[in-house]
Design a protein around this nucleic acid. Sequence first.
DNA 1: CACAAGCAGATTGTCGACAATCTAACAAGA
DNA 2: TCTTGTTAGATTGTCGACAATCTGCTTGTG
Lengths: 243, 243
Amino acid sequence: MAKLDFNPIADTTRRAEIVALLRRAILTGQLEPGQKLNELRISEQMRVSRAPLREAMRELVQEGILTSIPYAGTFVIDVTAKDIDDAYSLNKVLDEFAIARTWPLRDQRFFDELDRRHAAVKQATRELDTTRQIETALQLHGLIHEWADNSVLLETWQRLTSRLQMYFALHQRARNEPVPAEDAHETYVRLLKGTDMRAAQRHAKEHIDFDFEALLAYARGLERRGPNDASRASPTRGRPGTA
Amino acid sequence: MAKLDFNPIADTTRRAEIVALLRRAILTGQLEPGQKLNELRISEQMRVSRAPLREAMRELVQEGILTSIPYAGTFVIDVTAKDIDDAYSLNKVLDEFAIARTWPLRDQRFFDELDRRHAAVKQATRELDTTRQIETALQLHGLIHEWADNSVLLETWQRLTSRLQMYFALHQRARNEPVPAEDAHETYVRLLKGTDMRAAQRHAKEHIDFDFEALLAYARGLERRGPNDASRASPTRGRPGTA
DNA sequence: CACAAGCAGATTGTCGACAATCTAACAAGA
DNA sequence: TCTTGTTAGATTGTCGACAATCTGCTTGTG
């Protein structure tokens, strides 16, 4: 008998699809930070009742990209410079840990997957698809977390990734300029294939520093010129900060 | 005008109360790992309709202590030795980070709060209230994460805490013996008040090692004598592992 | 004009009922 | 005996309607 592992079949509930739709809308910036999600309107647009929509929203609230205020509404989280800074500094710690854990587990499959994801980033970069570029870059970066064989770490990183993706998407959307075609991940991939773990860890930090500084500067700029301009739909009752 | 900060008023939705009730039931071990949560039965017991109950369950699924399989049910997560090991090793990393961040922010209020929580642990220990003892010990331990001024770290740690509390509660429940009255946190508190940050970081790791080794051994024992015995209500379709 | 009370309108929270799906038991056939 | 098709019961997923709450406007009063 041939050895064959089947993957679990796809979720077939409306709820799961709604979660995916909403998450994508948020992470790509189609839903702006601070914006209120009107249940009735969204449920009509999606041709779904409010029950599965509300359940989906609860999931995203726990996922950290929505925030809910009872009887007031559910909002896309606000992005503050401090949030980005917090997420980034924790990300550095997790990266270091992930590399250490992954290091002895690297094998040919790891290197192949590394190349595959790296190629995907370059592909997206060539096509000037900024959204996909962010997505693929984060996936490339996530490999060490997937490979570290620590489910809690992976889960934690995925939560972080959601936010990072949202932040970067906002940033890209704001400057609205094609990204430099140069390959910023060449060194990262090479070091992960090498023999000097400490060097890889060091580079992981510095490499992200680059993108991050620009992002942070952008966020600070946003805050200087007042709260976000998506607040047209926000309530007067309370700022939908981190509830 | 006197400076006075009001706390947010309590959540007044049934959903929030249900979340609290269920979480407590799970973390104290009243709901055993692998056990299925029957929506109809629970909603009748709580005198609530299924809608808010289901929303509450979605939250707890995202919180990582429940797992859901479409059309099959929602289950308390299974506890494997590897899960505990994963959570623990990540916890060490977070602790180190939290101590580093908290260190320069320590002030009198920090020390007071440290003493307060330490006293709470000793109180619970004296009263042989094992559940409360776990709770207070984790709260004592959580201070450095609250004080680190990093919302993402705090959120991450709270998620981890949920699981750790569940694990420890299981452990305590299993051996079912009063805990030694000796104070295991004396050194930890003293070092946090001291001037040697590295020493505090080192101790944080070793200190938890102690409790953890016993916990891990217990979990391994559980697995050796087959899957859990709470599976009487589990589905045959698929193990409600980490879905 | 300032301000409190009260009244729509809109939105969220909750409910009870129905539809879709799964599980397990049983029957039919090779 | 083993496998496959069928069916009944139970449980989850979804829906539409009602109740509770909030916001902003209007109104009345000084």
